[in-house]
Design a protein around this nucleic acid. Sequence first.
RNA 1: GCCCCGUUCGUCUAGUUGGUCCAGGACGCCAGAUUUUCAUUCUGGAAAUCAGGAGUUCAAAUCUCCUACGGGGUACCA
Length: 515
Amino acid sequence: MNNRVRVRFAPSPTGPLHIGGVRTALFNYLFAKKNNGDFLLRIEDTDQTRFVEGAEEYIIESFKWLGLKFDEGVGIGGDYGPYKQSERKSIYKDFAMELVNKGKAYYAFDSAEELAQKRSEAEANKQTFQYDCKTRKGLKNSLSLSKEEVERMIAEGEPYVIRFLFPEDEMIEFDDMIRGHITMNSSLLDDKVLYKSDGMPTYHLANIVDDHLMKITHVIRGEEWLPSTPLHVMLYKAFEWDMPMFAHLPLILKPDGKGKLSKRDGDRLGFPVFPLEWHDPKTKEISSGYRESGYLPEAVVNMLALLGWNDGSEQEIFSLEELVNRFSIERISKHGAKFDMEKTKWFNHQYLQKVDTKDLAKLYFEFLKSNSAELKLDSTKLEIDFVETIVDLVKERCSFAKELWENSDYFFVAPTEYAEKALKKRWKEGTSARMMEIISHLENIEDGSTWAEKAEEFLMNYIQTNELNMGQIMNSIRLAVVGDTKGPNMLDIMKVLGKKEIIARIKIATERINL
RNA sequence: GCCCCGUUCGUCUAGUUGGUCCAGGACGCCAGAUUUUCAUUCUGGAAAUCAGGAGUUCAAAUCUCCUACGGGGUACCA
């Protein structure tokens, strides 16, 4: 079984994992599982200057939360390790040398400063400097220098990089599983650095070497890699290795304006761009995360999967398992997709309704207990059964678990003030007197399990005999009991709160409002 | 600038080999119904001259070319 599908998600630990990265990982996961293959996590930390403390742990925790399990890689292990490129440092040099010996790559001694100067000079003339077939002969490298000179410089410890030698005027072609056939002329490409002067490989070399060594069969990555794929194709050819299949995913764009979704957009527009909340160790800045904002991981996964992909049917809600079964890489769209936060909320609402009431109640119960002081409620009187009843009553009006409180606070704490708008509309001249009269009747109804039904029955009769309409009475009672024009059916509220509490609240309202 | 990729309702998209698409669904929006509340739910509606132009064809959102626009890349970053 050497044609087993193996894909990898290979982030760099330069900060928190962006939602676009999560989607790339998700598509890799779906493709792997659909084909009974392996999904690996490789950490690409070849740029030591950009390493950020905690980023690697963040990545691992994110996928744990999302429910995407890796079969192999950093934090899991496997037969092709180590899976962190900084720990594989020693293996890349030999491969770079192999290319030099084959005449496919060469040494270059130009300093970063020299090249930067070339670039700015070219820019001043409205041109672009490129290290390529036209310029390399005039630069300091093993192509322009004598063999002796090169050997001397290396022996003396002169810093150097190894660059790929692009052939001149050759058509480079490859097939992308999403975009089809792609061609590019090699003369347009520059001789990319493969091996840096600090002894580390660049992305291009490390990526190809590792994908080969780890027997990766399909490279599924963001569109930003499409322009460097010709280089990668040439590298596979130079090494005489089998090439994996490529698939370049469209990017996630800003909901407004131009360009791809960036870290800044989240806080600017009020939605998370990261799976988990991120505390920047240097700037101390905090960026919001989906988890902390109250999103369910299943909803985030579903939303991301449908951003740029669908199975052709009209179904939109998919479990991870269904996504795996339905997934096909050819159905991924070719163009970027603007992120839609309204639809994301809708997904969360859908998934929140699926959460078992008992589980949701447990969460809410814990929340109420730990915030009891702030919410001004007596935590010793809090009972899980009661909380469960409440959750069952108000869950459907919530998109987020955290909205539970704003939709059910009155079950726990009597209103201390009344919404102004509601007051104007629901409590007119004479309402207080009317309510006083109603209370006197309600008092006479026997307390017990059927009190609420009896009270309702009485109210119906009362409304009829007094030739009133139900809204006039029920809405005023609601205002007195809830403090606003919100909440479930009054009968349910009366049942839950009970005779004593209902009467007490109406009484207080008549005293306070005084109309 | 140069190179690569893309372009269907405000947004995400359906539209596999050209005809049954005067373009379907979802989010959002608007209206109505239910709940005489709010939310949910349900029903209905507005919303794309298929970026524009030229061509191929009896027939094009679907094929070809050009233009425009959008995105990405152009580092000893990934």
